[in-house]
């Protein structure tokens, strides 16, 4: 896996804890969507499953729909419901 052929995945707060890590890389392929990356993560880390309905998805620091198609080198983030303030 090289940097250019990968997608960087970031997980925060409850999602980071459920996954046991906050950052990983997944191989990129044509047509890969954010939802597919989540499904793969969830199958490897079942503790993520309860968060599936409430996580927001961001690609390169912008909120996007889950069916967004990813490009190699994208920074994909899964964000539990925010609670700043």
């Amino acid at each position: 896996m090289t940097g250019s052929a990968a997608v960087t995945v970031l997980l925060f707060a409850a999602a980071r804890e459920a996954a046991g890590r906050g950052r990983l890389e997944v191989p990129h392929r044509e047509g890969l969507t954010a939802a597919e990356v989540w499904k793969t993560l969830e199958s490897e880390r079942p503790a993520l499953a309860p968060l599936a309905g409430s996580v927001s998805v961001a690609v390169n620091h912008r909120f996007v729909p889950r069916d967004t198609v990813l490009a190699a080198g994208d920074e994909l983030a899964f964000l539990p419901p925010v609670s700043g303030g």
Binding site: S54, V55, S56, V57, F63, P65, R66, L79, P80, S83
Partner: peptide, 12 residues
């Protein structure tokens, strides 16, 4: 505990 805001995902 993690405090969580609105459960509805933000999509845009």
């Amino acid at each position: 505990v993690w405090v969580e805001g609105p459960k509805e995902p933000v999509t845009e």
